[in-house]
Design a protein around this nucleic acid. Structure first.
Lengths: 113, 113
DNA sequence: CGGTATCCAAAAGGATACTG
DNA sequence: CAGTATCCTTTTGGATACCG
């Protein structure tokens, strides 16, 4: 299987999408990002950030202070990815009315049979 | 949670992406699509197509002949979605060299410590 | 604060058999 | 041919406890 498919899956993954879109706005700290996204476990957020960092989409800046402070931001590569993902997310929102209509038609046809 | 997120997940899902990109090229029959994608079970392909059809992205045309013949194609809505998904897939492929380089750097830094 | 480790529940996904 | 049904395996994700 094509290796780029795995990278694409990283950026289009459930939490990957949300992280990228948030970081498009500005850098975030770990807990801040967690609150902003909502209903994401520490484990998944941590895992998602590590994957995106390893692929070169996210930059991790850990300041050696107490208490610890870690800022996450987009790299240039991540910025490009995030813009496209956001465009798709925005497009989807704009088309929700049509999707809802398609679903009604689909469900309707099935309930009759 | 936002309902459009679910729709976005449908189009960016593992098999959803591959189906949309294939159908961008031309209509496909079920088995044909399965062979084209490769390594997808009947169950998952069927499920993916049903979801995309219900959301209004894919049109299903079942001809009442024996043996059965079913053609799948993109709707106008699906075409728009597929184009964006493909753009993201193409972008990812083009950036694979940078991703690979980022990974080497990341893994290198970790193995030293 | 920003994680990791562990364990468990839930969901996704595959293989096979079967049907109209 | 184009699926559905069933069963099973794998992966994903959450909760909790703990650490530097």
């Amino acid at each position: 299987m094509c290796p780029s498919r795995l990278v694409l899956e990283h950026v289009t993954s459930r939490w990957g999408v949300l992280v990228l879109i948030r970081l498009l706005e500005r850098p975030y700290r770990f807990s801040e990002l967690r609150r902003a996204i909502g209903r994401v476990s520490e484990k998944m957020l941590s895992q998602t950030l590590q994957t995106l960092e390893r692929d070169g989409f996210v930059h991790r800046d850990a300041k050696p202070v107490i208490p610890p402070r870690v800022d996450y931001s987009l790299t240039d590569l991540g910025y490009e990815a995030a813009e496209q993902v956001q465009a798709l997310a925005v497009w989807t929102e704009e088309r929700m009315r049509e999707v809802a209509e398609a679903r009604r038609t689909y469900d309707e046809a099935r309930s009759v049979r």
